[in-house]
Design a protein around this nucleic acid. Sequence first.
DNA 1: AGCACGCCGACT
DNA 2: GTCGGCGTGCTC
Length: 738
Amino acid sequence: LQKPFLKIALDVPLDRLFDYLSNGEIARIGQRVLVPFGRKELIGIVMGSADTSDIPVEKLKSVIQIFHDEPQLDAHTLNLVKFSADYYHYPFGQALLSVLPARLKQIAPAKTRESFIYKLTEAGKHFSLDALNKRQQVLRRVLQALQTQHFLTDQDLSTLSATAKKSMQTLIADGLALAEKNIAKKQFVSTHSHPQLPALNAEQQAAVDQILLHKNSFTPWLLHGITGSGKTEVYMRLIQAVLLPESRTNIDAQVLVLVPEINLTPQLEARFKNRFPDFLLVSLHSNLSESDRLLHWQLAQSGEAKIVIGTRLSTFTPMPHLKMLIIDEEHDASYKQQDSMRYHARNVAMMRAKRLNIPIILGSATPSLETWYNVKADKYQYLALNQRAVSAAQLPEIHCVDTSKVHLQQGFTPQLLHALRTRLARKEQSLIFMNRRGFSPVLLCSACQWIAPCTRCSSRLVVHLKERKLRCHHCNFEQKIPLQCPSCGNPDLHPTGLGTQRLEETLAQLLPEARIARIDRDSTTRKNALVDMLNRVHNQEIDILVGTQMLAKGHDFPNLTLVGVMDTDQALYSPDFRASERLFAQLMQVAGRAGRADKKGEVLIQTEFPFHALFNALRTQDYVDFANAELEGRKLVNFPPFVHTALLRAESNRFTMVMQFLEAAFAHAYMQHQQVTVYEPVRPQMERMKGMERAHMLLQSSSRGALQHVLKNTVSHLRTHPLASKVRWAMDVDPLEF
DNA sequence: AGCACGCCGACT
DNA sequence: GTCGGCGTGCTC
C-alpha cells in the first residue's frame, strides 16, 4: 500500500477506521502499526489506504512506526472479525485488537522469547566426567544429564540447578556443548514413542470414515456420543488423517480444537501430546502467562503449531493452514462470551469453517437444542456413538426418589442414606451432587422471616460457617454474621437451605464413619487444592464426595458406584426456558460418573416430581427423546431456536437513566420492521448487581436478516444518543441468559 | 473508553 | 487563595 492515507483500526469504542498520513514506508494490510491518538500512542492495524480522506488534512497525524518485521494478520482472519463485529454489533477496531494477545497491544515491539536446546558436541560426547574438579558439582550434573538425555531445554536446566545455565555457558565456551536456537522444539518435543493405537469400535470407525469422506469441504457434523463412548479417540483419528494424509498433498495442515473453559485442558493436552509426539501442539487459554500466550499464538499464526487446543478465546487465532475444526462439548455455555463482543465461539467457528470450506465437528453427549434443531433440518450431518468404548462398562441405573412421600432426615431420604451405607460397607465411593443455584444456605430469622440480603445486588447473602461470614456470590461483598436480627432484634438466626458446606456437615453427622470431601468453589480456591483432593479420591482416601458442577466433568473414578442428586426441582419450573435443557445435560454428565469401570453404577435423584418427562428421558439415557420433546415445547411457544433473539442490556447506578435509555431504544426499534417483534424494557431476575440497576429489552424475529437490520439501525442510533455515554449498555445477539 | 478542559465547594 | 469534584466533548 503506497497511497498517502492509511485506514487504521484502533482499540477505541468508536465504530470507524481512523485516517493517518503514511510515514513514507510501505505498509501492508493487516500490519501492526504505532500511531498517535489524542495525547497517547496506540497500537493499530492497517486496514487499507486511500488517495483522499474525509478529514481535513491539517488534522491528520502521521503513523509513528510500522512493524515491518512481523507477520501481518491474514485476510481470512480480518474478514472473520469483520463478520463477527457486524453480527454482534460491536466496534470493529475493538473486536480486531481483542484477537491479539495482550503483548501485541503494547508499544514495545513483540520479541519472541529466545530459547534454546542444548546438545553435546563430539568432544563433549567423549569427555570423561573424571576430568572434572571435585568441586564442580553443577557442571558434573549438567554433563551427566546431557550424556543420558541427548538434549536439554532451558526448563530442564533450571530444574537441575539454579546455576545450571552458567555451567552450560562454560561447557559451550569449552566446546563441549552447543546451543541450538529452536522455538518450536523448546518445551514441546516429546520423547514418547508412538503408542499403540486403541482399536475403534464399529461406530467410531464409521464416524471417522464418514467424516474423512468429506474432509475437503465445509461439512458440519454432530458427533453425538454418550460419556465414555470415545469421542476423543475419534477426534484424534481425524486429526491424524488430516495432518498425515496418505497422498501427501496437505503436508502443512493445521487443526483447531476448541474445549470448554474448565480445568480439563491440561489432561486433554497431555493426551494429545502423547498421541502426536511429532507434531507441535500448543494450547491457548486464560491461565497461560502473557509470554506463553504470545508464543503459542505466534506459533499458530506462523503455521508451525499443527494442533491448537484452546478455549473460546482461541476462536479467532490466525492459522494459515487450518484444515479442520473440532468443538468439544459444543453445548457448553462457556463458549458464549459474556462481555465486550458477546460472540458464541461455536457459531463463529461454524462461519470460519464455511468460509475456509473445511469440515467442522461438534461433539457432545447432550447437544444444544440449537444444534439438534440444525441436525433435524439437515443442516448438520449426524453421527451417533451409542456404545461405551470400554465394552465392560455398563450404563448406570437411574431412579427417582419421591421426596414428597417420605420423611426427610436433614434433606436426605432413607433410600439415599441406605444406598450410601451400602457403598460404605462395600468400600465403594459415592458422589452427592447438588445444583448450586438457590440452595446455598441463607441466614433466616426464626421470628420475622428476615433473610440477610446483599445491599449491592438483588440477592441473598450466603452463610459461610467456617469463616463466620456472610458473602454475596455475585459481588463478593462480605460481612460478619450478625448476632441478632436487624429487623426485629431476635437473636435466634440460623442458616437455612442445603449448601454444600451444610451438606458435608450433615453427612458427617449421619455417617460418622465416612471420610467425606467437599469440592466447590470455596474449597478449591487454593492452587492445586482440586488436584490434591482428586488424588485423595483416586487413592481411596475418600468415601463420599460432596460437590457442585465442578465434579460433573472429566474426572474418572473407577470405584465410584453411587451418585445422589440432592434437589434440582427449581430448574424444572424455572422462568428461564433453558433451565431444563441445562439440567438434563448436567444430570446426564453426573450420571456418567457412576460405574465407569466394571462395576455397575446407580443414580438416585431426590425430587418431588419423579414422573417429570425430563427424568423419564434421563432414566433411559435418551437424549433424542428429551430433545425432541423439548423442541416441540419451544416450537409451541415460539422460543429459540424457532426464533432469533437479541437482548439490549443496560445498567447504571441510576435506574431512571437506564429506563430512559431503553425507552429511547424501544421508540426507535418498535414497529421498524413488520417481521421483528420488540418487547417493552423489563427488569431481569437479578435487577441489581454490584450496585448497578439493570434492565433489558428483547427483540425477536423468525428472520435473522430482518432482526439484524433492526439491530443495526438501533445500535447506530444509540451510539449517538446522549444517554449512551452515561449508561453501560451492550447488544447481546443470541443471548443465552435473560 | 480515556483524558482533557472547565467551572463551583471545603481545606492547609 | 487552591485542591479536586465529575459534567461535557473529542479523539484521524
